[in-house]
Design a protein around this nucleic acid. Sequence first.
RNA 1: GCUGCUGUAGCUCAGUCGGUAGAGCGCGUCCUUGGUAAGGACGAGGUCAUGGGUCCGAAUCCCAUCAGCAGCUCCA
Length: 650
Amino acid sequence: MLRVNLPDGSVLEYSRRVRPSDVAADIGPRLAAATLAAEVDGKIVGTDAPLPESGEVSLRLLTKRDPEALDLLRHSCAHIMARAVMRLFDGVQLAFGPTVTDGFYYDFLLDRSISEADFPKIEAEMAKIVKQDEPFERIEEPHDRAIELCAGLGQALKVEHLREGLGQEEMVSFYRQGEFVDLCRGPHVPSAGAIGAFKLLSVAGAYWKGDASNQQLQRLYGTAWFTQKDLDEYLKRLEEAKRRDHRVLGKQLELFLIDPEVGSGLVLWLPKGATIRRELERFIYQELLKRGYQPVYTPVIGRVQLYETSGHYPYYADSQFPPIEMADGDRFLLRPMNCPHHIRIYQSKPRSYRDLPLRIAELGTVHRFEQSGELNGMTRVRGFTQDDAHIFCTEDQVAEEFRGCLDMTQFVLKTLGLEDYRVRLGFRDPASDKYVGRPEDWDRAEAALEQVCREVDLPELEIERGEAAFYGPKADFVASDCIGREWQLGTVQLDYNLPSPQRFNLEYIGTDNRPHQPVMIHRAPFGSLERFTGMLIEHFAGAFPLWLAPEQARVLVVSQKFEDYGRRVEQTLREAGLRVSGDYRPEKVGAKIRDAQLELIPYMLVIGQREAETETVSIRDRREGDLGAMPLAQAIEKLQAEVHNKTLRT
RNA sequence: GCUGCUGUAGCUCAGUCGGUAGAGCGCGUCCUUGGUAAGGACGAGGUCAUGGGUCCGAAUCCCAUCAGCAGCUCCA
């Protein structure tokens, strides 16, 4: 006897073996037709997955109203795409075909390359399959039979996966739909007809099992939805996201430039972008000073030997600009990070425990030769400036210093209204040999870091093995760009290795009058100014809060007759510390407003006869529209207050 | 670095079958002097990414290079 508990509290009892589809049918034919999958005791299964013969289960039938069903739909669509590809091309080997956010992909190995020109053909074949509406049938096979089956189908990659990835499994499942059979955990929607709308999006290379030393497969990306309307809305969302892309806005609003004559991945900050950066720098310096940091300046190159000591040079040889070799054989490296210079400042005199914690900060410009395929607007570049600092402290001070770094990073993000981020704890992968230092130091560092992070209120804290820096574990603040790619912004890293005798051999004299090894913390709340600014552009869609806006206000004269008063207003604002310009073109005020709106200028000060006579300005807020006239002095106070408070305009 | 795609005026883009280049916006000049999202007229502006090749003839076809886009790999 099986008791089935349904979400509405009702209970059905069965003395025979049933599947979710049977339960749905018992409830009603409409539900039976609409059911795409089921959730049994919290686990998503297909409608044909047998329920236990006895006992008690809770069952939820999933229809197109449930987001979980959409995921299944996409997975099923990946199978249909694979089926179409196998019909159209010879010798196709299947790799993996999972769902991703808003869609799915499938990796194929085949002789000829697939290009976007092939999409209509593939989509047409998929449409045929969807129209036929054949069911997805689950088949379970013992491991050895599965290998035979895949080998018989010529699916060598699947055989490899069965042997290596699924070597421990006794039984594995396949899904069959017509002539198409695929090793797959499932579940799937009952049949192909559930797919309301789909579209192939792109094709790209992808390495087998994600390893660049393996063969490259062809990955087809697509998306699928319950209805054409959902698909259209999704495509529209993609279009809209593109409009806030920092590369598009950076050009449109003249914020920055990447010029091939200068070099790819090298950012030229235009005056307006430079203004934003300067304000961010001012903000971060104020904050550093409040928090007991000591700013320094150091050069952008150093002797190669310095980076041999740190371990960076051997470790990252491929991703650095090659050393500059002098006639006398001396070699210099364009610095790929700032820590060695700061370490040498630490070592410039004997340090006592009384000096600690020592916090050395610098907006340090570094250069790294990133792979060409990685370069991306301002988010991945070859020259960038970190809001870097290195804290040298005693073991006892680590937790508090680390907490302070997390706090500063959170403060910075909050000030800018960046709430949508996650924190990644990057720990070492014990199986990898890329990490330096003693395992016991690593354990200590990871434990210390995790404990502090757990104490502090951090959103979406996750531990990721293998994400540590080679010298220590770290906490990264990660945010997504307009098309959903994740980027590391702020980072706080704990380092027991660079101070060690094998590296720089840092010391301080303790209360016991004996030398001890300090601990280092590397931290950068923004991360890089380039990447952070890029993300800010997208976050604000180019409409910056007043304190960051390159042009905070524009004086618009109704007619050129009022140019004199307009220029006086402009000058008064400028003297009050505001960034302002004036539009005295012989255009109608409507045209001037439109231009200012499109340039995302926060405030427009409209000036005509009335204002000139009464020493007032008519303020127009870019978002709110006309706010009416007010005395010039009052307008200035209003703007200054907004700047001072770093008000976020929502 | 790898796979696929793309590169035409300052910007966004069109350019058919290979026959010597077009629009809108912007820019300049002139007219208009106006009240909260586009006033009008005229004009200038292109080594069709770069270098080779095929062809009587190349923006168009082929190759290479450079750059960008999407993805993979990498990310101190």
